[in-house]
Design a protein around this nucleic acid. Sequence first.
DNA 1: TTAGTAACCGGACTACACCCCGCTTATTGG
DNA 2: CCAATAAGCGGGGTGTAGTCCGGTTACTAA
Lengths: 202, 202
Amino acid sequence: MLPVEPVGLSLGQPREERADAARNRAHLIEVAREMVAELGADKVTMDGLAERAGLGKGTVFRRFRTRAGIFHALFDEEERRFQQRVLSGPPPLGPGAPAVERLVAFGRARLEFLVEHTILARAALDPGKPVPVGDGPSLFHVQMLLNEACPEAAASGTLALQLVAALEGPILLYLQSADAPSPMVDDLSASWQVLVERVAAS
Amino acid sequence: MLPVEPVGLSLGQPREERADAARNRAHLIEVAREMVAELGADKVTMDGLAERAGLGKGTVFRRFRTRAGIFHALFDEEERRFQQRVLSGPPPLGPGAPAVERLVAFGRARLEFLVEHTILARAALDPGKPVPVGDGPSLFHVQMLLNEACPEAAASGTLALQLVAALEGPILLYLQSADAPSPMVDDLSASWQVLVERVAAS
DNA sequence: TTAGTAACCGGACTACACCCCGCTTATTGG
DNA sequence: CCAATAAGCGGGGTGTAGTCCGGTTACTAA
Protein backbone atom coordinates (compact mmCIF):
# COMPACT_ATOMS: atom_id res chain seq x y z
CA MET A 1 0.00 0.00 0.00
CA LEU A 2 1.20 3.48 -0.80
CA PRO A 3 2.09 5.70 2.10
CA VAL A 4 -0.60 8.27 2.65
CA GLU A 5 0.66 11.78 2.05
CA PRO A 6 0.48 13.57 5.36
CA VAL A 7 -1.94 16.43 4.92
CA GLY A 8 -1.09 18.39 8.02
CA LEU A 9 2.24 20.15 7.79
CA SER A 10 4.10 19.21 4.64
CA LEU A 11 6.33 22.23 4.30
CA GLY A 12 8.48 22.34 1.23
CA GLN A 13 9.03 19.03 -0.46
CA PRO A 14 11.18 16.90 1.85
CA ARG A 15 10.19 15.68 5.19
CA GLU A 16 12.01 18.32 7.18
CA GLU A 17 15.30 17.54 8.82
CA ARG A 18 15.18 15.20 11.74
CA ALA A 19 16.13 16.59 15.12
CA ASP A 20 19.23 14.48 15.66
CA ALA A 21 20.39 15.19 12.13
CA ALA A 22 20.16 18.92 12.74
CA ARG A 23 22.05 18.54 15.98
CA ASN A 24 24.79 16.61 14.24
CA ARG A 25 25.05 19.13 11.45
CA ALA A 26 25.57 21.96 13.88
CA HIS A 27 28.09 19.99 15.84
CA LEU A 28 30.02 19.00 12.71
CA ILE A 29 30.17 22.58 11.50
CA GLU A 30 31.43 23.70 14.87
CA VAL A 31 34.12 21.03 15.01
CA ALA A 32 35.09 21.71 11.41
CA ARG A 33 35.59 25.38 12.17
CA GLU A 34 37.81 24.49 15.10
CA MET A 35 39.89 22.17 12.98
CA VAL A 36 40.33 24.72 10.22
CA ALA A 37 41.47 27.32 12.71
CA GLU A 38 43.73 24.88 14.47
CA LEU A 39 45.28 22.78 11.72
CA GLY A 40 44.60 24.66 8.50
CA ALA A 41 42.06 23.74 5.87
CA ASP A 42 44.24 21.25 4.04
CA LYS A 43 44.76 19.19 7.16
CA VAL A 44 41.04 18.67 7.67
CA THR A 45 40.08 15.18 6.55
CA MET A 46 36.72 13.49 6.49
CA ASP A 47 37.93 10.74 8.81
CA GLY A 48 39.53 13.21 11.17
CA LEU A 49 36.42 15.33 11.34
CA ALA A 50 34.23 12.31 11.94
CA GLU A 51 36.45 10.98 14.69
CA ARG A 52 36.87 14.29 16.44
CA ALA A 53 33.15 14.88 16.28
CA GLY A 54 32.50 11.43 17.68
CA LEU A 55 30.46 10.37 14.65
CA GLY A 56 30.79 7.88 11.84
CA LYS A 57 32.32 8.72 8.52
CA GLY A 58 29.11 7.94 6.69
CA THR A 59 27.37 10.65 8.65
CA VAL A 60 29.86 13.28 7.58
CA PHE A 61 29.41 12.34 3.94
CA ARG A 62 25.66 12.31 4.23
CA ARG A 63 25.76 15.87 5.54
CA PHE A 64 28.27 17.42 3.18
CA ARG A 65 28.35 15.13 0.17
CA THR A 66 32.00 15.91 -0.49
CA ARG A 67 35.06 17.32 1.17
CA ALA A 68 34.55 20.64 -0.53
CA GLY A 69 31.03 20.57 0.87
CA ILE A 70 32.37 21.06 4.36
CA PHE A 71 34.09 24.27 3.44
CA HIS A 72 31.14 25.29 1.35
CA ALA A 73 28.98 25.03 4.44
CA LEU A 74 31.41 27.03 6.52
CA PHE A 75 31.74 29.64 3.80
CA ASP A 76 28.00 29.86 3.43
CA GLU A 77 27.61 31.04 6.97
CA GLU A 78 29.98 33.92 6.33
CA GLU A 79 28.33 34.57 3.01
CA ARG A 80 24.97 34.92 4.67
CA ARG A 81 26.35 37.47 7.08
CA PHE A 82 27.82 39.41 4.16
CA GLN A 83 24.49 39.25 2.36
CA GLN A 84 22.87 40.84 5.33
CA ARG A 85 25.12 43.85 5.16
CA VAL A 86 24.37 44.25 1.47
CA LEU A 87 20.63 43.88 1.75
CA SER A 88 19.94 45.91 4.83
CA GLY A 89 23.09 47.72 5.87
CA PRO A 90 23.76 51.42 5.51
CA PRO A 91 24.37 52.92 2.05
CA PRO A 92 26.25 53.00 -0.20
CA LEU A 93 26.69 49.27 0.33
CA GLY A 94 23.13 48.80 1.44
CA PRO A 95 20.11 50.27 -0.33
CA GLY A 96 19.60 53.97 -0.65
CA ALA A 97 22.40 55.07 -2.97
CA PRO A 98 22.58 55.34 -6.77
CA ALA A 99 23.26 52.08 -8.54
CA VAL A 100 26.78 52.89 -9.68
CA GLU A 101 27.83 53.95 -6.23
CA ARG A 102 26.40 50.76 -4.81
CA LEU A 103 28.29 48.72 -7.36
CA VAL A 104 31.55 50.42 -6.46
CA ALA A 105 30.93 49.92 -2.77
CA PHE A 106 29.91 46.33 -3.35
CA GLY A 107 33.14 45.67 -5.20
CA ARG A 108 35.36 46.93 -2.44
CA ALA A 109 33.38 45.15 0.25
CA ARG A 110 33.33 41.92 -1.69
CA LEU A 111 37.07 42.04 -2.28
CA GLU A 112 37.78 42.60 1.37
CA PHE A 113 35.38 39.84 2.27
CA LEU A 114 36.98 37.39 -0.10
CA VAL A 115 40.47 38.21 1.07
CA GLU A 116 39.41 37.66 4.64
CA HIS A 117 37.93 34.29 3.78
CA THR A 118 40.18 33.21 0.95
CA ILE A 119 41.01 29.93 2.57
CA LEU A 120 37.41 28.86 2.93
CA ALA A 121 36.38 30.21 -0.43
CA ARG A 122 39.09 28.37 -2.28
CA ALA A 123 38.65 25.19 -0.31
CA ALA A 124 34.97 25.30 -1.19
CA LEU A 125 35.87 25.22 -4.89
CA ASP A 126 34.79 21.83 -6.13
CA PRO A 127 36.73 20.89 -9.24
CA GLY A 128 34.35 19.91 -11.98
CA LYS A 129 31.38 21.63 -10.46
CA PRO A 130 29.79 24.83 -11.74
CA VAL A 131 30.35 27.41 -9.04
CA PRO A 132 30.50 27.44 -5.28
CA VAL A 133 30.42 31.16 -4.68
CA GLY A 134 29.08 33.95 -6.82
CA ASP A 135 26.28 31.90 -8.22
CA GLY A 136 23.77 33.09 -5.75
CA PRO A 137 23.75 36.45 -4.07
CA SER A 138 26.63 38.18 -5.81
CA LEU A 139 25.49 37.55 -9.33
CA PHE A 140 21.92 38.40 -8.52
CA HIS A 141 22.91 41.62 -6.82
CA VAL A 142 25.22 42.80 -9.58
CA GLN A 143 22.62 41.95 -12.17
CA MET A 144 20.04 44.00 -10.33
CA LEU A 145 22.22 47.07 -10.00
CA LEU A 146 23.33 46.76 -13.58
CA ASN A 147 19.75 46.64 -14.77
CA GLU A 148 19.26 49.92 -13.01
CA ALA A 149 22.45 51.54 -14.24
CA CYS A 150 22.43 50.49 -17.88
CA PRO A 151 19.48 48.33 -18.87
CA GLU A 152 20.49 47.84 -22.50
CA ALA A 153 23.91 46.41 -21.78
CA ALA A 154 22.74 44.28 -18.89
CA ALA A 155 19.91 42.63 -20.74
CA SER A 156 21.57 39.37 -21.68
CA GLY A 157 22.88 38.69 -18.21
CA THR A 158 26.35 37.83 -19.39
CA LEU A 159 27.76 41.23 -18.55
CA ALA A 160 26.86 40.77 -14.92
CA LEU A 161 28.47 37.37 -14.96
CA GLN A 162 31.65 38.79 -16.40
CA LEU A 163 31.76 41.56 -13.85
CA VAL A 164 31.36 39.09 -11.02
CA ALA A 165 34.15 37.05 -12.53
CA ALA A 166 36.30 40.17 -12.74
CA LEU A 167 35.66 40.74 -9.07
CA GLU A 168 36.07 37.26 -7.70
CA GLY A 169 38.33 35.59 -10.23
CA PRO A 170 41.55 37.32 -9.24
CA ILE A 171 41.16 36.22 -5.64
CA LEU A 172 39.70 32.82 -6.33
CA LEU A 173 42.03 31.57 -8.98
CA TYR A 174 44.53 33.99 -10.36
CA LEU A 175 46.38 34.86 -7.17
CA GLN A 176 48.00 32.93 -4.37
CA SER A 177 46.33 33.43 -1.05
CA ALA A 178 49.58 34.77 0.32
CA ASP A 179 50.21 37.47 -2.24
CA ALA A 180 47.07 39.42 -1.64
CA PRO A 181 48.37 42.19 0.58
CA SER A 182 46.43 45.34 1.20
CA PRO A 183 47.92 47.30 -1.69
CA MET A 184 46.75 44.61 -4.07
CA VAL A 185 43.23 44.85 -2.75
CA ASP A 186 43.40 48.61 -3.08
CA ASP A 187 44.50 48.30 -6.67
CA LEU A 188 41.82 45.77 -7.47
CA SER A 189 39.29 48.00 -5.82
CA ALA A 190 40.43 50.98 -7.84
CA SER A 191 40.28 49.23 -11.17
CA TRP A 192 36.91 47.77 -10.28
CA GLN A 193 35.72 51.31 -9.84
CA VAL A 194 37.12 52.27 -13.23
CA LEU A 195 35.46 49.24 -14.76
CA VAL A 196 32.05 49.92 -13.31
CA GLU A 197 31.99 53.62 -13.84
CA ARG A 198 33.04 53.39 -17.44
CA VAL A 199 30.66 50.57 -18.23
CA ALA A 200 27.81 52.52 -16.71
CA ALA A 201 28.72 55.74 -18.48
CA SER A 202 26.11 56.26 -21.15
CA MET B 1 85.48 15.06 -4.33
CA LEU B 2 83.17 17.52 -6.01
CA PRO B 3 82.12 16.78 -9.56
CA VAL B 4 83.85 19.08 -11.98
CA GLU B 5 81.39 21.35 -13.73
CA PRO B 6 81.52 20.48 -17.40
CA VAL B 7 82.72 23.56 -19.23
CA GLY B 8 81.73 22.55 -22.70
CA LEU B 9 78.03 22.84 -23.39
CA SER B 10 76.11 23.75 -20.26
CA LEU B 11 73.05 25.31 -21.81
CA GLY B 12 70.49 26.77 -19.47
CA GLN B 13 70.72 25.54 -15.92
CA PRO B 14 69.77 21.87 -15.91
CA ARG B 15 71.52 19.16 -17.78
CA GLU B 16 69.07 19.12 -20.69
CA GLU B 17 66.43 16.45 -20.91
CA ARG B 18 67.69 12.99 -21.54
CA ALA B 19 66.72 11.39 -24.84
CA ASP B 20 64.65 8.56 -23.36
CA ALA B 21 62.88 10.99 -21.06
CA ALA B 22 61.86 13.13 -24.01
CA ARG B 23 60.64 10.09 -25.87
CA ASN B 24 58.59 9.02 -22.90
CA ARG B 25 57.08 12.45 -22.47
CA ALA B 26 55.92 12.53 -26.05
CA HIS B 27 54.54 9.04 -25.79
CA LEU B 28 52.70 9.80 -22.55
CA ILE B 29 51.12 12.91 -24.00
CA GLU B 30 49.99 10.99 -27.03
CA VAL B 31 48.47 8.19 -24.97
CA ALA B 32 46.88 10.69 -22.62
CA ARG B 33 45.22 12.43 -25.52
CA GLU B 34 43.86 9.14 -26.75
CA MET B 35 42.48 8.27 -23.36
CA VAL B 36 40.81 11.64 -22.93
CA ALA B 37 39.16 11.30 -26.31
CA GLU B 38 38.17 7.73 -25.63
CA LEU B 39 37.12 7.64 -22.00
CA GLY B 40 36.66 11.26 -21.00
CA ALA B 41 39.01 13.26 -18.81
CA ASP B 42 37.63 12.08 -15.50
CA LYS B 43 38.30 8.45 -16.37
CA VAL B 44 41.98 9.06 -16.94
CA THR B 45 43.97 7.84 -13.95
CA MET B 46 47.68 7.93 -13.31
CA ASP B 47 47.83 4.15 -13.02
CA GLY B 48 45.79 3.65 -16.14
CA LEU B 49 47.90 6.05 -18.14
CA ALA B 50 51.10 4.41 -16.95
CA GLU B 51 49.87 0.94 -17.77
CA ARG B 52 48.53 1.82 -21.17
CA ALA B 53 51.74 3.63 -22.01
CA GLY B 54 53.74 0.63 -20.87
CA LEU B 55 55.61 2.68 -18.26
CA GLY B 56 55.87 2.76 -14.51
CA LYS B 57 53.69 4.89 -12.33
CA GLY B 58 56.67 6.75 -10.96
CA THR B 59 57.58 7.88 -14.45
CA VAL B 60 54.22 9.47 -15.01
CA PHE B 61 54.50 11.41 -11.79
CA ARG B 62 58.03 12.47 -12.57
CA ARG B 63 56.85 13.96 -15.85
CA PHE B 64 53.68 15.70 -14.75
CA ARG B 65 54.04 16.15 -11.01
CA THR B 66 50.29 15.84 -10.46
CA ARG B 67 47.19 14.58 -12.14
CA ALA B 68 46.24 18.07 -13.19
CA GLY B 69 49.70 18.33 -14.70
CA ILE B 70 48.74 15.86 -17.39
CA PHE B 71 45.89 18.01 -18.58
CA HIS B 72 47.98 21.10 -18.16
CA ALA B 73 50.48 19.62 -20.58
CA LEU B 74 47.78 18.72 -23.07
CA PHE B 75 46.19 22.12 -22.76
CA ASP B 76 49.53 23.83 -23.19
CA GLU B 77 49.94 22.39 -26.64
CA GLU B 78 46.63 23.89 -27.71
CA GLU B 79 47.49 27.10 -25.95
CA ARG B 80 50.70 27.40 -27.91
CA ARG B 81 48.82 27.02 -31.15
CA PHE B 82 46.39 29.71 -30.08
CA GLN B 83 49.28 31.97 -29.13
CA GLN B 84 50.64 31.64 -32.61
CA ARG B 85 47.46 32.95 -34.15
CA VAL B 86 47.51 35.91 -31.81
CA LEU B 87 51.13 36.79 -32.30
CA SER B 88 51.46 36.32 -36.02
CA GLY B 89 48.05 35.70 -37.52
CA PRO B 90 46.07 38.15 -39.63
CA PRO B 91 44.50 41.21 -37.98
CA PRO B 92 42.43 42.10 -36.11
CA LEU B 93 43.41 39.14 -33.94
CA GLY B 94 47.02 39.37 -34.99
CA PRO B 95 49.05 42.58 -35.09
CA GLY B 96 48.15 45.41 -37.41
CA ALA B 97 44.86 46.68 -36.01
CA PRO B 98 44.07 49.32 -33.36
CA ALA B 99 44.35 48.10 -29.78
CA VAL B 100 40.66 48.14 -28.99
CA GLU B 101 39.78 46.17 -32.09
CA ARG B 102 42.43 43.65 -31.22
CA LEU B 103 41.06 43.33 -27.71
CA VAL B 104 37.57 42.69 -29.02
CA ALA B 105 38.83 40.14 -31.50
CA PHE B 106 40.97 38.53 -28.84
CA GLY B 107 37.98 38.16 -26.57
CA ARG B 108 35.84 36.38 -29.12
CA ALA B 109 38.68 34.12 -30.20
CA ARG B 110 39.62 33.30 -26.63
CA LEU B 111 36.03 32.43 -25.74
CA GLU B 112 35.68 30.13 -28.69
CA PHE B 113 39.02 28.58 -27.88
CA LEU B 114 38.07 27.96 -24.26
CA VAL B 115 34.72 26.48 -25.15
CA GLU B 116 36.39 24.14 -27.58
CA HIS B 117 38.84 23.02 -24.92
CA THR B 118 36.75 23.39 -21.79
CA ILE B 119 37.36 19.86 -20.68
CA LEU B 120 41.12 20.18 -20.78
CA ALA B 121 41.14 23.68 -19.36
CA ARG B 122 39.04 22.73 -16.37
CA ALA B 123 40.85 19.49 -15.77
CA ALA B 124 44.09 21.45 -15.74
CA LEU B 125 42.78 23.52 -12.83
CA ASP B 126 44.83 22.50 -9.83
CA PRO B 127 42.93 23.21 -6.64
CA GLY B 128 45.09 25.26 -4.34
CA LYS B 129 47.45 26.45 -7.00
CA PRO B 130 47.65 29.98 -8.33
CA VAL B 131 46.60 29.75 -11.94
CA PRO B 132 46.82 27.17 -14.67
CA VAL B 133 45.72 29.23 -17.62
CA GLY B 134 45.68 32.95 -18.15
CA ASP B 135 48.83 33.54 -16.19
CA GLY B 136 51.04 33.54 -19.18
CA PRO B 137 50.08 34.65 -22.64
CA SER B 138 46.55 35.94 -22.09
CA LEU B 139 47.33 38.26 -19.25
CA PHE B 140 50.44 39.55 -20.93
CA HIS B 141 48.62 40.20 -24.16
CA VAL B 142 45.68 41.99 -22.59
CA GLN B 143 48.03 44.07 -20.49
CA MET B 144 49.94 45.11 -23.59
CA LEU B 145 46.88 46.14 -25.56
CA LEU B 146 45.46 47.91 -22.56
CA ASN B 147 48.63 49.89 -22.11
CA GLU B 148 48.17 51.04 -25.65
CA ALA B 149 44.47 51.81 -25.38
CA CYS B 150 44.36 53.54 -22.02
CA PRO B 151 47.72 53.82 -20.27
CA GLU B 152 46.45 55.57 -17.15
CA ALA B 153 43.90 52.94 -16.23
CA ALA B 154 46.13 50.03 -17.10
CA ALA B 155 49.07 51.17 -15.04
CA SER B 156 48.57 49.05 -11.94
CA GLY B 157 48.09 45.83 -13.85
CA THR B 158 45.02 44.83 -11.91
CA LEU B 159 42.62 46.01 -14.58
CA ALA B 160 44.14 43.61 -17.09
CA LEU B 161 43.85 40.84 -14.55
CA GLN B 162 40.21 41.60 -13.98
CA LEU B 163 39.48 41.69 -17.68
CA VAL B 164 41.13 38.33 -18.18
CA ALA B 165 39.07 37.00 -15.31
CA ALA B 166 35.95 38.42 -16.92
CA LEU B 167 36.85 36.60 -20.10
CA GLU B 168 37.91 33.24 -18.74
CA GLY B 169 36.06 33.02 -15.45
CA PRO B 170 32.61 32.36 -16.85
CA ILE B 171 33.86 29.40 -18.84
CA LEU B 172 36.34 28.13 -16.29
CA LEU B 173 34.26 28.20 -13.17
CA TYR B 174 30.90 29.85 -13.41
CA LEU B 175 29.31 27.65 -16.05
CA GLN B 176 28.88 23.96 -16.60
CA SER B 177 30.70 22.67 -19.60
CA ALA B 178 27.41 21.49 -21.01
CA ASP B 179 25.54 24.76 -20.83
CA ALA B 180 27.83 26.74 -23.06
CA PRO B 181 25.95 26.64 -26.32
CA SER B 182 26.71 28.99 -29.16
CA PRO B 183 24.22 31.66 -28.13
CA MET B 184 25.93 31.88 -24.75
CA VAL B 185 29.27 32.42 -26.38
CA ASP B 186 27.75 35.05 -28.60
CA ASP B 187 26.33 36.84 -25.62
CA LEU B 188 29.60 36.65 -23.73
CA SER B 189 31.37 37.92 -26.77
CA ALA B 190 28.98 40.81 -27.13
CA SER B 191 29.27 41.92 -23.52
CA TRP B 192 33.02 41.56 -23.69
CA GLN B 193 32.93 44.04 -26.54
CA VAL B 194 30.81 46.42 -24.50
CA LEU B 195 33.20 46.03 -21.59
CA VAL B 196 36.32 46.72 -23.59
CA GLU B 197 34.98 49.54 -25.69
CA ARG B 198 33.59 51.41 -22.74
CA VAL B 199 36.68 50.93 -20.62
CA ALA B 200 38.84 52.20 -23.45
CA ALA B 201 36.60 55.16 -24.15
CA SER B 202 38.48 58.21 -22.96
C1' DT C 1 0.83 3.47 23.42
C1' DT C 2 2.37 1.05 19.69
C1' DA C 3 3.44 -0.50 15.10
C1' DG C 4 5.46 1.06 10.80
C1' DT C 5 8.47 3.55 8.09
C1' DA C 6 11.80 6.48 6.40
C1' DA C 7 15.74 8.60 7.49
C1' DC C 8 19.93 8.21 9.91
C1' DC C 9 24.20 6.07 11.63
C1' DG C 10 28.50 3.50 11.41
C1' DG C 11 32.46 1.41 9.77
C1' DA C 12 34.27 -1.87 6.48
C1' DC C 13 35.54 -1.54 1.48
C1' DT C 14 37.24 0.36 -2.93
C1' DA C 15 39.82 3.32 -5.90
C1' DC C 16 43.01 6.56 -6.79
C1' DA C 17 46.61 10.42 -6.12
C1' DC C 18 50.94 10.74 -4.61
C1' DC C 19 55.54 9.12 -2.14
C1' DC C 20 59.77 6.41 -1.83
C1' DC C 21 63.81 4.02 -2.73
C1' DG C 22 66.53 0.52 -4.88
C1' DC C 23 67.53 -0.75 -9.74
C1' DT C 24 68.62 0.51 -14.66
C1' DT C 25 70.40 3.13 -18.36
C1' DA C 26 72.00 7.12 -21.10
C1' DT C 27 75.76 10.07 -21.17
C1' DT C 28 80.46 11.73 -20.88
C1' DG C 29 85.46 11.94 -20.20
C1' DG C 30 89.48 9.09 -20.52
C1' DC D 1 85.80 0.92 -25.73
C1' DC D 2 85.19 1.43 -20.62
C1' DA D 3 84.26 3.20 -16.06
C1' DA D 4 81.82 6.50 -13.39
C1' DT D 5 77.83 9.10 -12.40
C1' DA D 6 73.68 11.30 -12.46
C1' DA D 7 69.26 11.08 -14.29
C1' DG D 8 65.55 8.15 -15.26
C1' DC D 9 62.66 4.23 -14.14
C1' DG D 10 59.43 0.95 -11.76
C1' DG D 11 56.17 -0.73 -8.76
C1' DG D 12 54.98 -1.50 -4.02
C1' DG D 13 53.27 1.39 0.02
C1' DT D 14 50.35 5.00 2.32
C1' DG D 15 46.63 8.10 3.26
C1' DT D 16 42.31 9.84 2.07
C1' DA D 17 37.88 10.70 -0.67
C1' DG D 18 33.83 8.55 -1.52
C1' DT D 19 30.50 4.11 -1.59
C1' DC D 20 27.57 0.54 0.45
C1' DC D 21 24.59 -1.80 3.27
C1' DG D 22 22.96 -3.83 7.53
C1' DG D 23 21.51 -2.25 11.95
C1' DT D 24 19.33 1.64 14.70
C1' DT D 25 16.41 5.47 15.89
C1' DA D 26 13.34 9.44 15.50
C1' DC D 27 9.00 10.63 13.78
C1' DT D 28 3.83 9.60 12.26
C1' DA D 29 -0.64 7.85 12.38
C1' DA D 30 -3.93 5.09 14.45
